Amino acid sequence: MKKIIYLLLCFAGLSASAQVTDTTKKINIADTLKKDLFTAPDTVKHLRSKSWALVPPSVLVAYGASNFFFKPVRRLDVSINNDIMEDAPNFKHHPENFFQFTPVVLVYGLNLVGVHGKNTFIDRTMIFAMAEVMMSLTTFGIKKVSHRLRPDGSDYYSFPSGHTANAFLGAEFMAQELGDKSLAYSAIGYSFATATGILRMYNRDHWFSDVVAGAGFGILSTKAAYLLYPYIRNRLFKAGREKEDNRDVPAELKKEPKTSSILLPSYSQGYLGMQFSMQF
């Protein structure tokens, strides 16, 4: 049991080591929704969503995938599963079915009581939807291709863990939106995600490397969504903004192609002629 908790906490070490006091004022729910839904920022704010941030979750995915060709990783999977069988041979409880959604529910719930995230409701929801699509397509596609048998022998969809991927997607979503207000929010999200991974192993639904890879896919999907969304949003709404900016401008002042021309008579060396000039 100690081995399992230690290994999981190693890759979930993003949890907070200190807590910052959240001094957000309580306001009316209707006012909160109006402010958060309709007051769109000029530029989408995104926290810690730089390209280098994709490296740590990619390492988790690589570790999980290495079980197919690296025997020490496979032996560790078997060792951890044997420890679980000894500690809790009859364990059959599935709170992880709810834990995987808890971080996302908390983000929207806290928003209702006045704790605003980094982005407005619409932007935040679009980012979350993008992350879910990327994660779902990746994990369920790989499940069919990898054809790995679950520890309980029920089917061949063990790698990677979809529950864990979804839980860590939500945990990173919570960290991105609320992590700058208080590190406690990041710690709460990642605690639920880590618990989800542990429970998936205790229910013999997944091997340890399945859970590690699932965590990597979940975090990677969220970080990629935060990285890509500002570019997609700006491109989609750029034309609309330009049209809106020019809507009330008089027709004679709207930007038109700037051209000018001039035609002048000329006389040189006894010859009469014309000179034409145009500027674009």
Rank of each mutant, 00 (worst) to 15 (best):
A65D: 07
S191M: 06
R233T: 03
N234D: 14
A184N: 00
V55M: 09
T194H: 01
T24C: 08
K143Q: 04
S221F: 11
L8G: 12
A18W: 03
I122Q: 02
Y156F: 11
E172C: 05
L253V: 06
S191H: 00
T23L: 07
D42E: 15
K255H: 08
A129F: 08
L7M: 11
F70T: 04
A40C: 10
M135Q: 13
G240F: 08
P160H: 05
V133P: 09
A18G: 13
I122V: 08
R204K: 12
L183D: 15
A88S: 12
S182C: 01
D22F: 01
A171K: 02
G153C: 01
A129N: 01
Q279F: 12
F140M: 04
G214T: 04
L37R: 04
K26Y: 12
E252D: 15
F91E: 01
P103F: 03
L37V: 12
Y108M: 06
Q269A: 13
S15N: 13
G114R: 00
T32L: 08
L47P: 12
V104A: 10
N246A: 12
P57H: 00
S261T: 11
I80L: 15
E244A: 13
Y6M: 08
E132Y: 10
S136H: 12
H163S: 03
K254S: 11
Y108D: 00
R247F: 12
P89W: 03
G162N: 01
G273D: 00
A171T: 06
L76C: 05
N97Y: 09
Q275M: 14
G240E: 12
A30R: 06
V78G: 05
R200W: 07
L199C: 07
K25A: 14
E172G: 03
P151M: 04
E256G: 11
Y202A: 15
G153Q: 03
N119W: 00
P57M: 01
I29H: 06
L7T: 03
V105W: 10
S161V: 05
A175E: 06
G218V: 04
S268F: 09
T222C: 07
